[in-house]
Design a protein around this nucleic acid. Structure first.
Lengths: 205, 205
DNA sequence: AATCGTAAGCGTATGTCGTACGCCTACGAG
DNA sequence: CTCGTAGGCGTACGACATACGCTTACGATT
């Protein structure tokens, strides 16, 4: 009977994501998103309860875009690598939302499906019971940390600069390591770390 | 010649940390910290350039409290476990600062010393060159992710509730896994995941 | 075709935030 | 005793989230 809604939550989320992608996370506000949609600020509150919920929708939009279907791959390690890569790729396409993903991760049905698929692959690999819980959480921990390190770590090269300027006498290993670090790309680093975790799961006692 | 400073940056950071520990991260503002110190709001700006710098000081205070001395332990795995545990313990004592640690991590000299020590232990273990960089970053990724998962994951049990209410038919593995998850404490989960990473480093090709 | 209840959409207002700017004043060197 | 410097503070401004109440478009009913 009443007036129909003119926008879906998906359109709201898309507008917010557009603001973040264009002007950065700091530019996200109820005003900017409303402006992006051509509505007044308060009209937005007919669609979302508060700013927090808006952020949740953005994360949902990004994370639900992750393909959770069982991936190709000869071994279970390859399959999990594909699955992890999908998350990294999708989130990496919108670096601004990285800080939001942690707090709103649980709202995404897509990421739950993704977890379900990962658990299936782990089961294939013979990982069972509590061991499988620990493996999944370990994998998730690495994935979260690695993505954050990749996108929030340098922060305009501040970190790299700090390490480069370290007193070599007091930090001999760091200085040496910084040299090696230059030879390694982000991609290689991510997959190298992931390979460590996968070897660790495979080599369970 | 001029009037001497009446406060150190350490005292400022301690006041801010007290606010966070008592009233949560959301309560942190220039006004509340100034109030905690018994000064006016603007007096604070004689000590810190802006809010961002204040946050950096808090992270520094927390992270510099991590003992970076070479730890006891028969094997290198045990030594790294002790080192990682120190960070988890220290940060876990101030859960409110967890969201700040990622963005301001690099400002802490203490965490650099900690990294130096970790690199030393990895060297002992025979991990060299670029392989050592990947191992350190992998370890860091896991540590960051695990700590965040531990402190931002449940968020008033919202995540657990969401998983518990999942349609069993569509998410058979998740349902099964949730059951196992109840048997595992946070401590056990953290060390289990860390053990995976350490096994993965040990089993390097 | 006329009516009317409902919810969409908006304008205004409040309180909080970070912080720019300028004044006053305590201090220690001369 | 004096005076330049820098510490400390009050006021003010613009941006923010959001509570509240008004107006208006719509579609189901008459």
């Amino acid at each position: 009977m009443p007036r129909p809604r003119s926008l879906t939550q998906g359109q709201i989320a898309a507008a917010a994501l557009a603001v973040i992608d264009r002007d950065g996370l700091a530019a996200l506000s109820m005003r900017t998103v409303a402006g992006e949609l051509g509505m007044s600020t308060m009209a937005l509150y007919r669609y979302v309860g508060d700013r927090d919920e808006l952020e949740g929708l953005v994360v949902e939009l990004v994370l639900d875009g992750v393909d959770a279907s069982p991936p190709p791959g000869a071994t279970w390690q390859e399959r999990i690598t594909v699955l992890a890569g999908r998350v990294r790729e999708r989130v990496g396409a919108h670096p601004g939302v990285v800080p939001l993903t942690m707090t709103h991760r649980h709202r995404s049905a897509g990421i739950l499906r993704w977890s379900e698929t990962v658990l299936g692959v782990l089961a294939e690999a013979g990982v069972e019971g509590p061991e499988r819980v620990v493996a999944l959480r370990g994998l998730l921990s690495y994935l979260i940390g690695a993505i954050q390190l990749e996108h929030l770590g340098p922060l305009s090269g501040e970190g790299t600069a700090a390490i480069a300027g370290l007193p070599r006498a007091e930090f001999p290993r760091m200085a040496e390591t910084a040299g090696h670090a230059l030879l390694i790309g982000a991609e290689e680093e991510f997959h190298g770390g992931l390979a460590i975790v996968l070897r660790g799961i495979a080599a369970r006692t």
